[in-house]
Design a protein around this nucleic acid. Structure first.
Lengths: 110, 110
DNA sequence: GATTCGAATAACCAATTGGTTATGAGTCCC
DNA sequence: GGGACTCATAACCAATTGGTTATTCGAATC
């Protein structure tokens, strides 16, 4: 019900500010993947991927699920909520025709 | 009508990734301000503010209006559109209850 | 027209950051 | 238990970045 803390948007924007990191998030938004699977095709080393995942996790954008020796990562469905919250702060920027935006955003809150 | 280019989201996320820069944008989202007015209360030097404004302008987030010796900056109402475009790419992340999201976002396109 | 003011640019610097290789701590499999 | 595999962390490095002061240029003011 209450809006996301201001600092949450900070971490989120910073986390998504890096293209490589955002690409990882976009892959995770489609399916759960292990660190190995993410590393293959990422074009960077496995430790680099792990560091990016730590940042994404810190921003609440991804969730991890350790299983045996591998860790499965997936996007957190509620992770992008602070971004929508932030947008609501600037609702007045949008054209008046988007008056349904507020209703929509309210449904994100609970 | 056509979705924003992928690179647009890149510039936007990077521009908003810095807290100081986002604070400047948030002030401009409420009213048009000169560089001087922005500098007062920003806690950083005027050249620093000018550099941040250049980045925001490059990302399409603000518009400038030179007038005499001062430059007036204001938020670009269409500047955040790429962010909504990007969100549509991850629509599947959101809970099914937000099925009106697509309709809403479509209205951003024209 | 001399001076002050507003903004952008240049030159520079310290801190942050995104990457690397090396290593360590668990887990699976023979 | 020995070896291969997965992931995280440590240590380090080059590049980027956000800040500074100095300077320049154009516009307002006296």
């Amino acid at each position: 019900m209450e809006p996301t803390a201001p600092s949450a948007a900070d971490a989120l924007f910073r986390a998504l500010g890096d293209p490589t990191r955002r690409a990882l998030f976009e892959r995770l938004a489609q399916s759960e993947l292990t660190v190995r699977a993410l590393t293959d095709g990422a074009g960077i080393s496995q430790p680099a991927v792990s560091k990016h995942l730590a940042v994404l996790k810190g921003a609440g954008l991804v969730l991890d699920r350790p299983q045996g020796r591998e860790t499965h990562y997936r996007a957190n469905p509620r992770g992008l909520a602070p971004l929508l919250d932030w947008m609501r702060l600037h609702e007045n920027l949008w054209a008046d025709s988007f008056d349904r935006l507020e209703d929509l955003l309210k449904r994100m809150d609970q």
